[in-house]
Design a binder for these strands. Structure first.
Lengths: 231, 231
DNA sequence: TTATGAATTTCGGAC
DNA sequence: GTCCGAAGTTCATAA
């Protein structure tokens, strides 16, 4: 990892063309050769960048660049595409390198995928007698989050969202319409499961005969932990 | 802008919970108080971050933290939500601050603008005998992307999109209706040009007598390069 | 101001 | 590997 603070102008060409006028910015060069150009604001997204795999070459400025006061010319080329990032450095204000090593990585919790996994493991949350058929049950218009079987042996299609809104109900409705045509599955009941279900979404769902289930993430995770400890 | 290289552990809680074990990382503190935690790899996305508006407070570690070797405790709180980022610094390897000022901002040449320029230069893509009248042809409801003249001398109004969807057809339709009232131009034919035209948009366009032209951006850019070299 | 869709998207999981 | 959908999405534009 190398960090350079410099007055620089940046040009990117590739999927689009972009230009950054001369200003002070922070340049980050990662161990894999990728380069990030950050300003002192905005979000976590850099103003410009080059994703790995790529290679950085530093050249002496020539001709017009040299006359314009460029002291270093960086060219970052993508290894796979013809994307190119050119950094014209006019003044280096700081330059620091450090060995960081490989990061042990992020531990994440709480996304929709985790809810899906937990509900699949605790499918009885839908009610006694429910059994899991499979996660990501494929259909012609995309996979249903969870397909289960109810206590009477009927099919149950479950759509899971972190926040249940109208478009989620619409999505489930499309699945139900399609799945209901399959004589091996029909009749298919729908369950809309989310940590939080917006009132409008609940009204729409129940109007269409879809059951709404609010998921208690902490409780589900707690049960999961208990299970892990018990077995 | 402040840049700190440090051995640290990071915890985020908010929309989800995430934890980064102790390792060397780069911490970026922007002028607006936002904080980015970068590793020496991955893409431009930080391992963890806090978006502005937010505030950073630095505390002396106490109790277990102090015993575990924490020398600085950073807490970054979102001003709007209850998101929180906690950085436990065990060792500071570098610490640098710099005044960057406000960035003049990015100048983007989107693909659509480039497509317009390229098609104007290569207007014969519309068919033999076409000539350019002008780009950004002004009308009372806004400029038409390209106005051209067809082989029989008739007017041709061109709407350019990267992805041709229904609203683009509607836009062109409005232009055509307006331009068609001008006796100096009428009759005006319409051309809907895009890198990709959605089937629904194509159906609507052709139903209205508008010709659809799919543009090959790479080929057009290639021709442009050849031209640039020749002249 | 809000909603809608694209992104030089990135990131992860399923197959 | 590829494909597909979510993201602590972020970002821009249109309504």
């Amino acid at each position: 990892m190398r960090v350079v603070v410099a007055r620089c102008a940046v040009d990117y060409s590739g999927r689009l063309d972009a230009h950054l006028p001369l200003a002070k910015r922070l340049l980050m060069v990662k161990a894999d050769g990728s380069v990030l150009v950050h300003s002192d604001g905005g979000s976590y997204k850099p103003l410009n960048w080059m994703s790995p795999p790529c290679s950085l070459t530093v050249d002496e400025p020539e001709g017009a660049d040299a006359e314009a006061g460029v002291v270093e010319l960086w060219t970052v080329r993508s290894a796979k595409t013809d994307d190119k990032l050119v950094v014209r450095i006019h003044e280096v204000l700081a330059d620091h390198s450090a060995e960081l090593g490989v990061d042990p990585g992020l531990v994440k919790d709480g996304v929709e995928a985790h809810l899906q996994k937990l509900l699949a493991e605790q499918i009885e949350i839908l009610g006694p007698g429910h059994t899991l058929v499979r996660r990501e049950y494929p259909t012609a218009i995309g996979p249903v989050d969870i397909m289960a079987r109810g206590p009477e042996g009927n099919s149950v299609a479950v759509e899971i969202k972190r926040r249940g809104e109208i478009d989620g109900v619409e999505q489930l409705t499309r699945y139900l319409e399609l799945l209901g045509r399959d004589p091996l599955l029909a009749p298919v009941r729908g369950v809309f499961a989310a940590q939080e279900i917006k009132p409008q979404a609940r009204v729409l769902a129940e109007d269409r005969g879809i059951r709404c289930v609010v998921l208690d993430y902490d409780a589900m995770r707690g049960l999961d932990d208990v299970d892990s400890r018990l077995f």
